[in-house]
């Protein structure tokens, strides 16, 4: 089960290049491999925590009481609070890390991937409890990190090449992402 979650999360249903989640940081931040890796690790961390908190709240508190229509509000509140706490903790514990990552942290709140994994956990057939939800968060985050780091590596090289004026920035990143998507598309043929 762990293996299925891992392969599905990282490759078959890769959040960035297959499910289109977490594109904004993917495009905006992936110019350098270090910042990409840092963002990926932070996002993975928040994804695991978010899964751990939102899944039980929805399954054990909201569903039995028939208030599942408040799901969106509750989830985004949980995620925003998590990111806020994370920011405070990092600032206290490691000021240097905070300086390096400071700008990106608030952006994690609006990252589609985090709310995405919280929502997907509710209907995903491989998620059957809090533990598998957290695992799904972990592996989806790893997949996200993988995609964003690869793209950063590619873009570092591409930025040194002459690019037609109108292709610079977003278009060329999109096309590179497309090629990556083609590579990952192969994984969707794996049935387990």
């Amino acid at each position: 089960m762990v293996f299925s979650l891992a392969i599905a999360g990282i490759f078959i249903s890769n959040y960035v290049v297959v499910q289109f989640l977490g594109i904004c940081p993917f495009l905006g931040l992936s110019k350098k491999v270090d910042s990409a890796l840092g963002m990926g690790v932070a996002v993975t961390f928040v994804m695991v925590l978010a899964s751990l908190i939102t899944y039980p709240i929805y399954t054990y508190i909201m569903l039995p009481n028939g208030i599942e229509y408040l799901e969106i509000i509750v989830f985004i509140f949980v995620i925003a609070s998590l990111v806020q706490i994370l920011e405070m903790v990092i600032r206290k514990m490691s000021p240097s890390l905070y300086k390096a990552m400071g700008v990106y942290l608030p952006l994690i709140t609006t990252n589609c991937a985090i709310l995405g994994v919280a929502e997907i956990n509710l209907t995903y057939e491989l998620v059957t409890g809090v533990f598998s939800a957290a695992l799904n968060g972990l592996f989806s985050g790893i997949g996200f990190t993988l995609a964003i780091v690869i793209l950063a590596g590619l873009r570092e090289k591409i930025d040194k090449l002459p690019t037609p004026k109108h292709m610079r920035g977003f278009p060329i990143s999109m096309i590179t992402a497309g090629i990556m998507a083609m590579a990952f598309y192969v994984f969707t043929f794996i049935t387990m």
Partner: peptide, 9 residues
Amino acid sequence: PAGAFMTYG
């Protein structure tokens, strides 16, 4: 998905 990225780009 690849087509999505490329067309949008």
